[in-house]
Structure formats: structure tokens, C-alpha cells
Write a protein that binds this DNA or RNA. Sequence first.
DNA 1: GCCGTTTTCGGCCCGACTGTTTTCAGTCG
Length: 561
Amino acid sequence: MKNKEVADILDEIADYLEMQDVKWKPQAYRKAARNVENLSESVEELYEEEQLQDLDGVGENIAEKIIEYLETGKLEYLQELKQDIPVDIEALTAVEGLGPRKVKEIYEARKVTDLDELEEAAESGEIADIEGFGEKTEENILKHIEIARRGQDRMLLGKAYPIAEELRSGLEKSDNFDRVKFVGSFRRKRPTVGDIDVLATSNNPGEAMEEFAGREDVIEVLGSGQTKSSILISGDLQVDLRIVSETSFGAALQYFTGSKDHNVGLRTLAVEKGLKLNEYGLFDSEENKLAGETENSVYSNLQLDFIEPELRERTGEIEAAAKGKIPDLVEKEDIKGDLQMHTDYSDGKASMREMAEKAESSGLEYILITDHVKALDIADGIDEKALIKQAERIDELNEELEIEILKGIEANITGEGLDISRDKLKELDIVLASLHGRINSPTEKIIKVFRDYPVDIFAHPLNRKINSRKGLDIDLDKIIKVAAEEKVALEINSQPERLDLPWREIKEYREDVKFVVSTDAHSAFELSYMHLGVAQARRGWCSKEEVLNTRPLEGLRSYFE
DNA sequence: GCCGTTTTCGGCCCGACTGTTTTCAGTCG
């Protein structure tokens, strides 16, 4: 899968063209880059099937360049562009406030090509002297160069959540704020967020902005105006606040939630209908406002069903909404049980009782205990003897507690099969299998395990870790075909750094296979991650029917039998 | 460079904010 790689190349071309003040081409390259990046299949596949030009924004020229890069690993055109202005464009534009044009001017005036040279030039006062630059720009460069150097990863959604909630409760308590809503990728529940966007209404915009910029956790105020402010809070997390009027709150909510591509699609549709859509509302050709107070009114006036924020990624949601084909998405309240968690029998921190009581208090009807098998060296696993003891303990707790505790295990897919015997598995209610290390020909091994063992759930299928580990290179088409035949459900793992199966794959396969959403909790607190997994199921267009643990216990059992 | 049931040529999103300017360009989202 070289989608990200190809997208980066196209973005780099756009940067260089922008430096040279070329018109329109940069946008064309960026559009193509976004569409390659957002592909659900691999760009290599499109190339092999000679379908690159079917992609919106990819014409003859860009297709040729993609082909050259895929075939040779290089791109002559980009090399040439680089020769004219040999700078590390990616690193330099990562400095807040520096874009391609300024990078070019700094290069031409001071021969700065990378972050070290930039720092040197700024420290010795050589930047402020460049025409069009000044003291402030130089200061800002010095202030932001360290952040650029750290090459910040986007923050995990699960990590941003508590920060965002605290922020919201603070703003909601204040008299300066009336309505407070999250927008942007946080509202769309993308697995990672670049910043947190907040939309608000206020009777006192000036004071509201002042209060926002004066918060205790503010490290730096990046900008502050009448309607828009940006701050940097602890952990290098940027928070943007926009204050809008009550009458256009819905339109602003729609606009700032994005995604950008979704909005482009909506605006195009508006234009086709002779209307105009912006962050202030939906207008007809005489500038009469047709909608804007609520988000719903914007969609309904475009003759569209309401589109949930999680779906707004331009993967066909606008077309579906026009035909009334948006699925009724699964909700966290639909979830009746949690089918992966670890206890102090293996590497979990809490006892079974603690886990069960916490799950019960959050309204679940059943849980599945899935400690690791001992053979797995990454965790302090459970052996067969302890498994018997655990089963007895589960029986005891089931006598005592309302919630039903099911017996399970997370078995490891090894080179030879599973690291636990078939006989042992038969004594369990539900069996999870997963991959941890790397093995040779994983696709075949996984399929063999599905065929040979009574596996019910394939846990965290790609075994990816966001920002640190790429997913396994496995053939999901083949695996899911067998999973469907053997009634193996695919897990949507709710751990913030996993969120695996990822949403694009969920969307692609949701008609072929069933899913379960589980927390994989290793502590009682982590049981609260369920909403993160549900959000990814929603991003994957899943309805309640496609998620097995929305069923009451009997329904779940009957599926796996 | 891409795209088109109004076009194969002429459009391509645009407003807020900052810093540097005396009216605007660059950046960001």
C-alpha cells in the first residue's frame, strides 16, 4: 500500500509549484493527493488495472507521474523541481507560519535549506532583515522551530477526548459562552486529530475570546480575533475557537465539521441547484437565506437526508443521502456486551470482579473474559491449570452478579496454528484469535486457523498501532471470505492506538462479514473506550445489525453455535 | 493540471488573521 507515499510526492510537487507561483496546478496536485490518500484500495492495484485516471482529479499527466514513481521509485519531474530550489520543503513548511512562498524567499535571500540553517539564520537576526519579513516573523520562527523538529504525530482521538471534555466543561460553566460544540475531525471521530476545533455562540464575543486566550493551560496564543482564536495548550495540542451568531450556528456547525472534501461535494450540489452554501447559511440566487440555524436544515434544503458527522469523508455519503440510503448507524447504547478484556489472570490490572462490576454499572448485560494464553511472551499469560480455576471463579461470580460473565480466551496465531489445544477451546463460550508478532505467509496461516479451530472472533485483524506500527500486509479479501464461511466475526478494537479493523476496511467489508466492537480493556477504566470503537464502526457505515454484540446474549450465542 | 447534461476553453472556495505593509500577501483551516 503506497497510497500515503504517492500522496506525499504529489503534495511535494504542489509545494514546489506554489513556490514558483504557478497558478492552479498546485490545487490540482493537492486534490489528486487527497484522493489517492483516501482510497480504500491500494494505488498499486489501480495502476495494475490501468484505472488510475478513473480517480477524480487524476488525469493523463498526474497518472503518468504516479506510474513513473510506482515503476521506478523515482520521479524525474520532482527531481527537476527540487534542483531549482533545493530545500527540505516538508520540514520547513512544518514550521507554523511558514509556507512555500516564504520558504522560497528565505532560501533566495539567505540560502536556508533546512531547519538547522533556518534556526541559525533566525538566531543571528538574518531573517528580520529580509524584505517583507520583520522582527515578529523571526521570533515566531524561533518559537515554532522546535515543534516542527519534533515532527509531531497527530494526537490519538482517545487521548484528545479527556482534554476536550475538560475544555468543554470549562467553557460551558462560563457566562461568556452560550452554546459550545466540537467540530472538525474530533467531531467526525477520526482516529487521530491534528487539533481540537470548538464552535460557540456568545453574547460577549470579545470577553469570551479573552477568557479563552487567558486559560490556565495556555502555552501560547497563536492568534486571537473577534470571531476566531487559536491557542496551544499543554502537550502541544492546538485548540481553535470560533464564535458565530445564533442564526448561522447550524451552517457553521456543518461547515467547520468538514471534511473539506465533504464540504466541496455539498457546495457543488448547492451550485447545481442554483444555491450557495457557506459557513453563514444556504442562500438562493437572490441571497435569501434558506437555512442556517440548524445543521439539519442545511441538509434538508439540499434534499439530503441528515448525514452523521462520522460519515462526512466523501466516500459516497452525499449520493447515498440523496437516495435515502444512509444506514441507521449503530450507537453506543446499542452495545449489550464487551467481548474482549484482560484480568489479573494475565496482563490485566483488575480482578474479574472489578471488571464485571464496572461493566455492569455501565449497563452491559454480558462480558467475555479473554486473558492471553501463556505461550504468548508479550504478556504474563494464563496456563491451562489457571484457566480451569478461572472458569470456577466465573461460575461463582455468575451466581452473585447480575451481569453474565462468559468464558473466553485470546489465543495467539503462531506459525503452526493456535497456541492452545482444540480440546481446551471447546470448553469455552467464545474464542478469540489474534496475531501479535510477525509470521511468514500470515494470510494462509490465518485462514488455516479459521478452518481448523473453533474460532469465533478475529481480534484486531491488522495488528496495527497508530503512529508506530503499520498494519499487517494480509489479503483481507481472502481472509474475510473464509471468515464468513466459518462464521468468524471481525473485531473492531477500541484501544485508542489500535482502532483496528480500521474504518475504511469496515466500510468495504461490512456486507460480507459480521463485526464485534470490543474494548480489549486491561483495566476497569479502559472499559470506557467502547465509544471509540463504536465511532469507528459508525465511520465504517455499520448499522446495529452488522455488530453482533448489540444482540442480547441468546442472539449472540446462536450466531456462534 | 483537471474537468464539463449549460462549456473541449475557461473556470478552479474563501474568509479570518497576522505581519508587514500604507492597501496587501501569505498562511491557515
